[in-house]
Structures are given as C-alpha cells and as structure tokens.
Design a protein around this nucleic acid. Structure first.
Length: 366
DNA sequence: GACGGGTTCCATG
DNA sequence: CTCAACAATGGAACCCGTCC
C-alpha cells in the first residue's frame, strides 16, 4: 500500500549536452583534420563568405570564434580553420543514434534539441551513485563509438541538470544533489538560467541583480510587477532551483516554417515572386502534401536595417488546395511592399494550426 | 470577462 | 569600406474586437 504520508521519491534527471556538436561531427567525418580547427557555417549565398558561424571546435573558440558570428570575422580570427557548410541531416541522424541509447538508462527521454537531451534515470537506477556511474559509462561509450564528447549534468530537475551540464565543458560531469542546489546556483550569473537572455539580463542589471543569489532575495510581487505573472513566478522559482516541469518525450511540432536570405535586397514583389512560389511549394509538400493539413499561415521578413515584420492569417477549415495556399502567401507578401522605401533582406513562410485531414472526399474519388 | 486573432518581442542553438 | 542563418521553433505579452 502506498500511504499518502510517504513523499514521492525525488526525481533523478540528467541533461546531456553534446560538445561543439556540428563541428565535432564534421571532425569525425574528416579524420585527416583531427587536430585542426573546424568551423561549421550557414552560407547565405550573397557572396562566397557571407553568412554566419553555426558551430566551432574548441580550438577555434579559444581564438574567439563564436556561433552567430559573421563568417568573415571568424576567418580573420582563425584563418587556418576549415570552413564547412552545415549538413543538418547528418547531424540529426547521429543525434538520433546517440540519444536513443539513453533508453538503456532512462524510462523517459526528452530530446530538447538536436544536441541536447534530458533523461529521467530515477526508475532505472538503484541509487544516485548507480545513476552517476551509468551516465559516466554512457559518456565514455559515446566517445568510443562516435568519437564525440558530451557534458552531463545530474540533479533532481531539468533546470538544475541543464545548468550542471554547462558547468564543466567539454566532457564534464557535474552532480548537484538537492542539499547543494542553492549553493551551486547562488554565485552563478542570472544569464545561466534558461530563459534569461540578453534583454532580461539587462533589465535585471538595472535592478542591480547579477547573480542568482541577487535574484533570490527579490520578492515575488516585485518580480511579477516587473516581468509579468508568468515570467515573474518563473524567475522566483528558478532562483531557488525549483522546477517541477515534467520531461516531454514526444513534443509534437506546432509549426513549420522556412526563412531564407535573398541574394539581393528586394523592394518590389516582382523581385521575389519566383522564389516565394518555390519555397511555398516546398513547404506545402513538406506538410499538407504529406497529410499534415493546417489552418494558419504566415509570412515574415527582415529589412536591410534589421527591422522585422510579419503577417498571418487563419482559416476555419484546413487548406486543401496548394494553389490556394500559394495565393494566400502571395497576397500576404504584397503587404511588404506598401512602403516602397523598405528593402527586404530575409523573408520566410510559416504554417501552423495543424489539423487532421478534412473528411471530404478527394476529387479523385469521383 | 472570456476568448480568439494578430503582431511583436524574446529566447535558444 | 564591411556584417548579421535558419532544411527554425516556441512562449508570452499585449492589443483589439466580439460575444455573453
């Protein structure tokens, strides 16, 4: 019998973070460059070196190369590096192989992104030590079998496990038991909390809040006043290492989009009509074309001045005709050119509100 | 008020 | 004289109109 007086056993949650994932995968694909810096890039196509860095090996990082940095800048910091284009499909395949192995240690696994996963190892380990030992073994096996390093954090919730995996990199293993959570978090900068980005950090800085300890002494009402109900409560709990959020093993995709950089900035519809139709067709084939019908569509764009703009539209019934979809996308894009002075640099298409296929008979049934 | 639609902003990698 | 992705996704604030 389970008595209600017995507290639920606390969870054991691991966060596994692949180190310099894309660049490391490329290194395994090019063994001849084993000890040479590699920078994985998203080339925009505007000019041979236009685009940004997606991932870089640690030796390139030591020279200052960072994700999001213009490729030309990375080239000047680390001219000896190999600059390779991203191969998303390959990384996804390897990611899948690696994280599938977690099921040997965990009953629930959440792939948080292509290079990160959470694993609930509570039920498949006899003790904390047992869990830690199995995870270290996992880390060694990934290195042996894939030639890839990862850092692991182990604690009792996702929030702390994630910060722990980041604590020692690369190839780190950080265990934070319940009693140590507060002393572990307190000295860290607030930016270590997932969800605190540059904007939130600067607002907190104005409030003279730098460390998680600084955040923890704030009252709940002050935080809600400053950040709103949801974020205020979240910041309050996070500063205490409180996070009851469950792992989400099968997150279904809620939207599908595509954004691309125009080879030349555009200020008229005629300049983009062709490429828009191509991408709209592709997006249709990836969604509705495979039976995933949707009721919402949207377009977005970024101007040469980095200004953003978006337009969207909802339908009461899913779109079933690709020509109608493309037509609707086109009319949304027309709105971009009402101001002829704006020059569009990047544009994108989004579909969402996925629904089950409509019950009507197909034309071919008649 | 609740709810839905739409837009923008922020965050992550 | 110059750069800034996306084979991107998701959450939330906020504004506004409608309905009850």
């Amino acid at each position: 019998m389970t008595g209600s007086l017995v507290p639920a056993r606390s969870r054991l949650i691991a966060h596994i973070d692949m180190n310099a994932f894309f660049a490391s995968v490329e290194q395994t694909l090019h063994p001849e460059w084993k000890n040479e810096p590699i920078v994985v890039c998203v080339f925009s196509g505007r000019s041979p070196s236009a685009g940004v860095v997606s991932s870089a090996t640690y030796d390139a990082r030591l020279l200052g190369v960072r994700a999001g940095m213009p490729i030309v800048q990375a080239q000047s910091l680390c001219p000896q590096a190999h600059f390779l284009p991203v191969q998303h499909e390959k990384y996804a395949e390897i990611s899948e192989q690696i994280f599938t192995r977690l099921y040997a240690l965990a009953n629930v696994v959440e792939m948080a992104s292509i290079d990160e996963a959470y694993a609930d190892v509570s039920t498949k380990s006899r003790s904390l030590d047992d869990a830690a030992q199995k995870l270290r073994l996992f880390q060694l096996e990934i290195k042996k079998d894939f030639g890839l390093g990862c850092s692991i954090g182990l604690s009792c919730n996702k929030l702390v496990a994630k910060i722990a995996s980041d604590f020692q990199k690369p190839n780190g293993f950080t265990l934070v038991v319940r009693e140590n959570i507060q002393s572990f978090l307190d000295p860290l900068p607030v930016s270590k909390l997932m969800g605190v980005g540059p904007q939130t950090e600067s607002v907190l800085r104005e409030m003279n809040i730098h460390s998680i300890a600084d955040l923890r002494v704030q009252s709940l009402s002050d935080l809600i006043k400053r950040f709103g109900q949801a974020r205020g409560q979240w910041l309050f709990a996070s500063s205490r290492g409180i996070d009851e959020s469950p792992l989400q093993p099968e997150r279904e995709q809620k939207q599908h989009s595509r954004m691309w950089t125009l080879v030349h900035d555009a200020s008229s519809w005629e300049e983009i009509v062709h490429v828009v139709r191509t991408h709209a067709d592709d997006l249709w084939n990836e969604t509705a074309g495979k039976g995933n019908f949707f009721t919402q569509i949207g377009v977005s764009g970024i101007t040469s001045q980095q200004g953003t703009f978006s337009k969207s539209k909802s339908f009461t019934v899913p779109l079933v005709v690709s020509e109608q979809f493309v037509g609707e996308i086109e009319s949304l894009f027309q709105l971009f050119f009402e101001n002829p002075l704006l020059r569009w640099r990047r544009i994108g298409i989004r579909v969402s509100g996925f629904a089950s296929p409509p019950k009507q008979k197909r034309l071919g049934d008649f």
